[in-house]
Design a protein around this nucleic acid. Structure first.
Lengths: 243, 243
DNA sequence: CGATCACGCTGATCCAGGTCAGTCATTCTT
DNA sequence: AAGAATGACTGACCTGGATCAGCGTGATCG
């Protein structure tokens, strides 16, 4: 895997070693590059003519709206992530996808993907793996919301995001830039914005992390890992599983 | 799709129309049939020599344990469901899988699956679709726990389970048999067992559902759908998407 | 056949986090 | 430059659900 390939190819490379032909196929998926402004849905629940996207730059949120007017953010996507896979495979999109910042992404249509699978079945396995990894993250959020208190939840979330950003070269154990507002955090963590604010203050006062002016800074990484019961190996892949 | 095929084939058939050859391939996946007693883990977190299974009969729970001793049940599996896909694709299993009742399941190894993908790439797409459907359910649980109160949560859960059982012929809008204890419900819904009991009583007193002696009986289906903000079309697939 | 266990069920009390109702500092508009 | 948004931040108060402590019943077992 060489750096001239897309972050998406890099991600899949963590699972299978891809041949030059397979890499070329992947690069061809990136031909339809599009730009989206912040805050206008790229995909919305119920939409029928759906596309999927591979994120090149910017941040995106996937969420569901409830009749009561509240929303639950299921996950944030960062560069290299696949968006809207489910909306392509299902008859209609089952969730909304909204850019948080200005976003650049490559549009992928169902048949592009299926054609790629036909010519290179190993790609199918790789995409299945990537989808499973996403599911693992959703599962972790479920555990977060179901069984951790607000402070642990926030800590775990900030650490996970850090780990993901590190993988694509946008963060380190020192910290990272983060365009999320406290409202977005609240909707992702199942808390109120007010409480998010309180929790962030507590974490700051405890000397664990600070999140101010769009910057997350880990003050006591190990302490935070311990508080949040964060599994250091979760999302870790040391070398491809399949040759 | 004819009934002599496995529930798993039936499920995939909801996405792609499968050729006789593809069906045969799927049936071959069912060769290693195994039986498991209730309550002994089939797969546990950190396990390295992992298999996946296709459930033939019985109920299973997938859960995560937290250091504090609590657990979060991520999902229950019923006949026709794939179990432990992630534990096959990842280096080690990231969650536990425990039978609730006595269980019969077919063991599937990674290479079985990959061989099948190689000979029939459309199967890969179908499995990807099934995995995405599972993810959609996890997402729904996330919304449940994050943004619905205990009563809605319970209602939504019982309705979803009903819909899933109906698909495999084990339930109807009248009700279904359900071997889950209040403790299991609690761990799945992020509640305490005590509160589960109270919520079930309230739902019963409201004349919406009763859950007694291993039987869920819908007394006022529409009322429950409304209370729980249940989307009737979620998990509905009228005819395959791809020919 | 008494003991133990699993499960359902209940009342009393407590607290994490929600809700309400703001203030203040920065942009973004016009 | 006034006004309108947006986002961070606070204190006062309220409540859904947790926790604790205990009862009843039927099944299993030595």
């Amino acid at each position: 895997m060489t750096p001239q390939h897309s972050p998406f190819a890099r991600k899949l490379g963590a699972f299978v070693v891809l041949s030059p032909e397979e890499l070329q196929l992947l690069d061809r998926l990136h031909s339809r590059r599009r730009t989206f402004p912040a805050r206008r849905d790229m995909i919305y629940e119920g939409q029928v003519d759906r596309s999927a996207y591979i994120l090149a730059s910017g941040w995106v949120s996937s969420y569901k709206l409830l009749p009561g007017g509240t929303r639950q953010i299921v996950d944030f996507q960062i560069p290299g992530d696949f968006l809207g896979l489910r909306s392509v495979l299902f008859r209609t999109a089952d969730h909304n996808i909204e850019p948080i910042t200005r976003v650049q992404a490559s549009e992928v249509q169902v048949h592009d993907l299926l054609d790629a699978f036909n010519t290179a079945p190993r790609l199918a396995a790789a995409v299945l793996w990537a989808a499973s990894r996403d599911e693992a993250m959703v599962v972790e959020h479920l555990v977060d919301i179901g069984r951790r208190d607000a402070k642990q939840r926030m800590g775990h979330f900030l650490l996970e995001l850090g780990a993901r950003l590190k993988l694509v070269g946008l963060g380190s154990n020192e910290g990272y830039n983060c365009p999320l507002t406290q409202y977005l955090l609240a909707d992702a963590l199942g808390l109120s914005a007010v409480h998010v604010n309180r929790v962030l203050r507590e974490l700051r006062e405890d000397g664990l992390v600070s999140f101010q002016n769009g910057k997350v800074i880990f003050k006591d990484f190990d302490g935070l890992v311990e508080l949040s019961e964060f599994d250091r190996h979760y999302l870790d892949h040391e070398g491809p599983l399949m040759k």
